[in-house]
């Protein structure tokens, strides 16, 4: 699976790494159940700090897209719904970014999200 990050971008590197995994899962180049490279290894590959990678992995875990197990590394959650979930998370993040651009506060955005739940 392909990781690409731009250190010059305003987006934090950890978020860029998480976005790579989400994108790969959404477009099928990474499969549910696949093992991600170890954080140290990926950090060496990209020339970034290992904590940056771990921040990205942690975010993916909070989004329910990967499992982190001590000693076993990071694993994309098994199950056929993982790609759809990745797409959903991506769209949510886009929506959140758009809300910020419009000048909405976090509270207003959450209210909006709650309203759309009906």
């Amino acid at each position: 699976m392909l990781f690409r990050v731009d250190p010059a971008s305003a987006v934090p590197l950890g978020d860029q790494i998480a976005a790579c995994v989400r994108g790969a899962l959404a477009d099928g180049s990474a499969a549910p159940g696949e093992r991600l490279p170890a954080a140290r290894e990926l950090a060496d590959s990209l020339g970034v700090n290992v904590h940056t990678v771990l921040r990205g992995y942690q975010r993916l875990r909070e989004e329910g897209l990967i499992e982190l197990r001590r000693g076993r590394g990071a694993l994309i959650v098994p199950g056929a719904t993982a790609p759809d979930r990745a797409r959903l998370v991506s769209r949510l993040r886009e929506a959140a970014a758009e809300a910020r651009e419009l000048g909405l506060t976090d509270e207003e955005f959450l209210d909006l999200a709650r309203t759309s739940l009906g």
Partner: peptide, 11 residues
Amino acid sequence: GAGEVAGWSRA
């Protein structure tokens, strides 16, 4: 991109 760093890894 010019400043982009990329890595590919697969088991």
